[in-house]
Write a protein that binds this DNA or RNA. Sequence first.
DNA 1: GAACAAACGGAACGATGTCCCGTTTGACGA
DNA 2: TCGTCAAACGGGACATCGTTCCGTTTGTTC
Lengths: 196, 196
Amino acid sequence: MNDGDEGTGHTARSKRADARRNEKTLLDAAAAIFVTSGVEAPVRDIAAKAGVGTATIYRHFPTRADLIIAVYRHQVEACAEAGPALLATSATPHAALGRWINLFVDFLVTKHGLAAVLRSDDAGFDALHAYFLDRLVPVCAQLLEAAARSGEIRSGLEAYELMRGVGNLCIGADRDPRYDARRLVELLIAGLRRPH
Amino acid sequence: MNDGDEGTGHTARSKRADARRNEKTLLDAAAAIFVTSGVEAPVRDIAAKAGVGTATIYRHFPTRADLIIAVYRHQVEACAEAGPALLATSATPHAALGRWINLFVDFLVTKHGLAAVLRSDDAGFDALHAYFLDRLVPVCAQLLEAAARSGEIRSGLEAYELMRGVGNLCIGADRDPRYDARRLVELLIAGLRRPH
DNA sequence: GAACAAACGGAACGATGTCCCGTTTGACGA
DNA sequence: TCGTCAAACGGGACATCGTTCCGTTTGTTC
């Protein structure tokens, strides 16, 4: 899709062939580097891997956040789309919420250092932060709301807060065998249950 | 205490007066800078505030972790010592645990960016990491164990893991009014309760 | 007050993110 | 096919920051 025109209605000219080729090459190189060196790998490394100059990266992806978003867009979309599906197929809304959060956690902990840059307290990743929030918070809110309506959980926790908390819990979950983010997230979700 | 000799038995000469003065000046300057710019403020800023050269900082505090430890040592000690006291004066071990965790959270969220460097996934803060763990994990373990013995909580969660999780939840708790780390930590502690 | 080691200050070095500018190259009309 | 030109490129330049080195200053001691 979107292989040429912009959606503005004007007939915007196609990008040059080499530019499109480089964008693809950069995405592949970045994905490979992210796996081996994490999402905070030096820009020069990615440029070298792709065989382009550093300026070319900035031309295609003005901030590192844009590059990260582009690399992981498919998986984030898949996670977002899994929300309603889980809600439809799970026994209870709380079960759906738990399973969906599990998907999210699995995604985060397998992406070297991604959770660490998702934390909002460092500037420069605003676009990444905004993308994750725009895409996933509404899904989480839908699940939370359903679980609240069913009476399974206490209300009063915003989806935004839960997502941030889960993201934070996943920081450093790789590299440390003594730290199991999944278990702590499970405890957090368990703590959501309404005490009866 | 320790205003001169080392404890080795040798008669180690006192440090020079200017060195001792500079160490104090540096601690004050660092504390002030940490409040305004966070614990990751540039070394040059701290040196400038103290009116010394950058090398002087490294001479007194080989790594940034050592400086941070020195600045906050008193408060960490106080937190550690509060553990047994709370256990003795609280109604139940679980209540003591909750109150102690609250102390820890209050400490973290009021120290600009401290929680962010406590996360283990970045190297270079090993000493800081080790200090917090050495000093606080045993206290937390004592509280956890008492609560487990009383049957209030599920067992199986290591104190280390809980401390790391709480620390992670506190990352970025300042700067973001929509994110309340205390509430999430409370949920986590609530999730620890044994379902009956 | 002279000698010596401790301590100092700031320049120097390396790594990294970011930007600039001279050069190359793909697209399109003649 | 070939000339033109803007898009795209590459790599060097600049700024920031952590860290180290080295010539100089200063406290201490005899």
